[in-house]
Structure formats: structure tokens, C-alpha cells
């Protein structure tokens, strides 16, 4: 789920940047530092939308750097256990398939794919129901439920399931376009 959240960060700035453009510098550094990062707590910071407030700088003893508490708003993407979302299948193998929902990778193990879907190897590996009516392959759009998340330093990895009601391949991809 995408969120619009307000976060705070202490930005350290070297005094040489002080001047009329101090704010711009801080903002630029903030964007550089923060956008694209990922933390377990807030998820991926996709884009900063607004800098709400820059607090009073505090000179760090011993270094001369000045720390500014910066309050900013950003679009963050954070997957939750139990969340249902749509994703694009990126790879299919016999263990299951990987899908992406924005920056997040989700793995759906074959144990979590309905039992009536069988793995078919070949050029375009896929999972297909016995009647062939439903097929999951690369670039398919699926609706899945996240059942577990793992947070690394730089990414969040999820495992998901499509073994539940109303989950699986999105029947009408036209609706999404």
C-alpha cells in the first residue's frame, strides 16, 4: 500500500553550504539521501512531495556539522502481512513465481498456488489449470495476498499466496488498463 506519510530526519550539513540557498541544499540532499531507500518500518520511500519544516540547526560539537531536523512528506510503499494487492509476474519457475508490486518483490511458492494449477516448463514457463483456462506466466497480472515479509537493509521481500478466494490471475486485464 502506498502511503503519504510525514517523516523526520536529522540532516547534517556542512557549514560551507550555508547561505541563501541553504534550504534548497537541504532539500536536495534530503531527496538524494532518502528517495529510493527502504526501511523495515516505513517501507520504500518513493518520492518526497513536500518539505514541511526545517527546524533550527544544531552545531555538532566536535565536527562543526550542523544538524537540522527536517520534517517532510513523502510517498512511501509499505507491504503488510495480510494485505491484498495486485502485482505483475516477473518470473515463473517450478518453485513458484515471482511478482512485483512497485519496488517490492513477492514470491508465491508453488505450495501457495492452488493445487489444480500445474507447472508447465518450456520457453514460457507457466502455471496452468488442468482445463487450461487460467494461466500464470511472465507478465501476467495477479492478485495476491502477502503472508510474510522480510526486511533487508535495502529491500523488503514478501511471500504471497494466491490460494484463497478472489485471488489469482486477474480475469479481466482490460479493466486494469
Amino acid at each position: 500500500m502506498f502511503f503519504h506519510i510525514t517523516l523526520e530526519r536529522n540532516m547534517q550539513l556542512h557549514p560551507r553550504h550555508f547561505g541563501p540557498h541553504l534550504r534548497e541544499k537541504l532539500v536536495a540532499k534530503l531527496m538524494k539521501d532518502v528517495e529510493g531507500t527502504c526501511s523495515g518500518r516505513h517501507g520504500f520511500v518513493v518520492a518526497i512531495t513536500n518539505v514541511e519544516d526545517i527546524g533550527k540547526g544544531l552545531i555538532r560539537e566536535g565536527t562543526g556539522f550542523v544538524t537540522f531536523p527536517v520534517k517532510y512528506q513523502c510517498v512511501a510503499f509499505r507491504p503488510f502481512k495480510g494485505e491484498i494487492l495486485e502485482a505483475v509476474v516477473t518470473m515463473v519457475n517450478k518453485m513458484g513465481f515471482f511478482a512485483e508490486a512497485g519496488p517490492v518483490q513477492i514470491f508465491v511458492s508453488n505450495h501457495l498456488i492452488p493445487d489444480d494449477m500445474e507447472f508447465q516448463s518450456g520457453d514460457m514457463p507457466n502455471y496452468t489449470t488442468s482445463d487450461g483456462s487460467v494461466k500464470i506466466q511472465k507478465d501476467s497480472e495477479v492478485r495476491l495476498k502477502i503472508i510474510g515479509t522480510r526486511v533487508d537493509a535495502t529491500e523488503i521481500f514478501c511471500i504471497g499466496t494466491i490460494k484463497d478466494d478472489f485471488l489469482g490471475v486477474i480475469n479481466d486485464p482490460g479493466a486494469a488498463s
Binding site: 556542512h14 557549514p15 560551507r16 553550504h17 550555508f18 547561505g19 540557498h21 534548497e24 541544499k25 532539500v27 536536495a28 540532499k29 531527496m31 538524494k32
Partner: peptide
């Protein structure tokens, strides 16, 4: 500090 305002960040988004 003196001579230049050392722009570490040449291109701010602004």
C-alpha cells in the same frame, strides 16, 4: 568555509 560555498550538490531539483 571562506572562499567558496562549495556546492556539494550541484544540481538541486530546484
Amino acid at each position: 568555509m571562506t572562499p567558496n560555498s562549495a556546492s556539494y550538490l550541484p544540481g538541486t531539483p530546484g
